[in-house]
């Protein structure tokens, strides 16, 4: 638990240091990243339906973003 947290802090630090340097692209190099299927939440409807199924059938849910409400359990 604590170790995971430290990992997160370390990651945030790394991102701060590396910021402009090696990571990332120039603004005009986003052709591939701009594709719909490269969006992190691409296929949002599928993700929502999956979340609902797994929320009802498993003990853990969420993590990706805020889930909608409701039980629809069993």
């Amino acid at each position: 638990m604590k170790r995971k947290f430290l990992a997160f802090v370390a990651l945030a630090g790394v991102l701060q240091l590396s910021g402009c340097a090696s990571l990332g692209v120039q603004p005009w190099e986003r052709d591939l990243l701009a594709k719909d299927e490269m969006a992190l939440g691409a296929e949002g409807v599928d993700l929502g339906l999956d979340d609902h199924i797994y929320f009802s059938k498993e003990a853990t849910s969420g993590g990706r973003s805020f889930a909608g409400g409701g039980c629809g359990c069993n």
Binding site: K2, F5, L6, F8, V9, A12, G13, L15, Q16, G19
Partner: peptide, 18 residues
Amino acid sequence: MSRIRALAGVISLSAGLL
């Protein structure tokens, strides 16, 4: 307690970026 301190660390790091 250490968790809270870690969180504070994240927030101050982030503030620098913001």
